[in-house]
């Protein structure tokens, strides 16, 4: 299972990890050995087997629609690395993602 440095670079970008060239190199080596290791999964016969997303046979419980605030908004804001005017401050956002 070969994984190219460019592929690793792409994944690092996707994960927003700023890896140096050296780190990309060693990461590629690591990922390659892991992928070799997990390749044994293809030996298992999974024909017709359902994937397990949850080990419990539970269904989602629902929360009644009762509004409640813990009153710790100020405490939450205190953890912000940068804040001002009651907002969280971030480097300028350009374009971007909107739902």
């Amino acid at each position: 299972m070969a994984i190219s440095k460019d592929e690793v670079r792409k994944v690092a970008r996707l994960a927003r990890l700023g890896l140096t060239e050296d780190e990309l190199e060693s990461m590629a080596g690591h990922m390659e050995s892991i992928l070799e290791f997990v390749a044994k999964l293809s030996e298992a016969d999974t024909e017709g087997v359902e994937p397990t997303a949850h080990v419990l046979d539970l269904t989602a419980e629902l929360r009644p629609d009762e509004p409640h605030l813990d009153g710790n908004a100020t405490e939450i804001m205190k953890s912000a690395p940068d804040a001002g005017f009651g907002f969280f401050k971030v480097p300028k956002v350009i374009g971007g993602e909107e739902i």
């Binding site: 994984i3 690793v8 994944v11 690092a12 996707l14 994960a15 927003r16 990890l17 700023g18 890896l19 780190e23 990461m27 690591h30 990922m31 892991i34 971030v90 480097p91 300028k92 956002v93 350009i94």
Partner: peptide, 27 residues
């Protein structure tokens, strides 16, 4: 800029083993 902030923050904040696992999981 913003993207650079993400990259550096996560590069500095996480140790190597965590980065390895994030990389593998993202892949």
């Amino acid at each position: 800029d913003l993207q650079d902030m993400y990259l550096r923050t996560r590069d500095e904040g996480f140790g190597m083993e965590v980065k390895r696992r994030i990389m593998l999981g993202t892949y």
